[in-house]
């Protein structure tokens, strides 16, 4: 049976359509649900296997990215969300959704202590919104979402992606294999904090983390925006090379692998 995905929308979330498309392309069945329909009880989280907080500009980023909506979720749906997080299900937060997960304390959720906020995604140290393609290296063995991925080319679009936490938290993230993606050069060598390879100044080049179980995943770039071969920056050159080698032009984008990993988890 296809896993059912609930993708949240409302209040300035704006990437729900392409996120649903990415899930549907890879063996899951997604449903876009307004946050108020969850709050009013028309829909229940327990009816789904995957809970997704997509990207966007919820509450137009006023008072800080993902803060107001995280408060709304916390104040109205805390119990449902914590129950979901503790059960053997998957949670994904992309970009603004990652900021929500961070503010809700669902990642990194150290010692299974979901609900405690221990990390921050601060303003980019470039002081500007960054909207372009970057490379990331998969660095976690336990993260379910990044399984069988080595280096990924992905688009970013954020003003607040500068990952930060206290050094004792960072050490635990490293020790517990919770760092899922780090910004890197195209060959996989580390960015070492250098702009533009690390696009925002993130501590230890961190672009994505997971909880202790590897099920709850927050990622700054947008894998859903690399759902087709022709989404990729520089696809025209790749196409020309393939044609000259007499090879077929693929249709799917490499970003789909992340969504495929989620549906495979339930098969």
């Amino acid at each position: 049976m296809k896993p059912k995905v609930i993708i949240l929308t409302g209040y300035g979330i704006n990437s729900e359509e392409e996120t649903a498309f990415a899930f549907n392309q890879t063996g899951s069945e997604s449903e876009i649900v307004h946050i108020n329909d969850l709050i009013d009880g028309h829909k229940k989280l327990e009816d789904y296997q995957i809970f997704c907080l997509p990207g966007g500009f919820s509450y137009s980023d006023d008072t800080g990215s993902g803060i107001a909506i995280a408060n709304k979720l916390h104040n109205n749906l805390k119990e449902q969300i914590l129950n979901f997080a503790k059960s053997d299900k998957l949670v994904l937060g992309i970009c603004n959704g990652f900021q929500m997960l961070a503010n809700l304390g669902l990642v990194p959720g150290l010692d299974g202590n979901y609900g405690e906020r221990t990390i921050a995604l601060m303003h980019n140290n470039t002081t500007r919104h960054q909207c372009r393609w970057i490379h990331m290296k998969s660095t976690s063995q336990k993260c379910i979402w990044t399984k069988d991925i080595e280096i990924m080319h992905l688009p970013i679009s954020h003003g607040e992606g500068n990952f930060y936490c206290e050094s004792n938290i960072l050490k635990r993230l490293q020790d517990q294999d919770q760092i899922a993606f780090t910004y890197c050069h195209p060959d996989g060598s580390p960015a070492k904090g250098e702009i533009p390879t690390n696009p925002n100044g993130a501590l230890a080049d961190i672009g994505a983390i997971c909880d202790e179980s590897g099920r709850i995943f927050g990622i700054m770039p947008h894998p859903e925006r690399f759902n087709s071969f022709t989404n990729e920056d520089g696809w025209e050159l790749k196409k020309e090379a393939l044609i000259r080698e007499g090879k077929e032009i693929p249709t799917k984008g490499a970003g789909l692998k992340i969504f495929e990993n989620a549906s495979t988890y339930f098969s």
């Binding site: 071969f229 022709t230 025209e236 050159l237 196409k239 020309e240 090379a241 000259r244 032009i249």
Partner: peptide, 12 residues
């Protein structure tokens, strides 16, 4: 067919 789009940069 989007894959028939032509970009401005010479390729090889």
């Amino acid at each position: 067919d989007v894959t028939k789009a032509v970009s401005l940069d010479p390729k090889f």
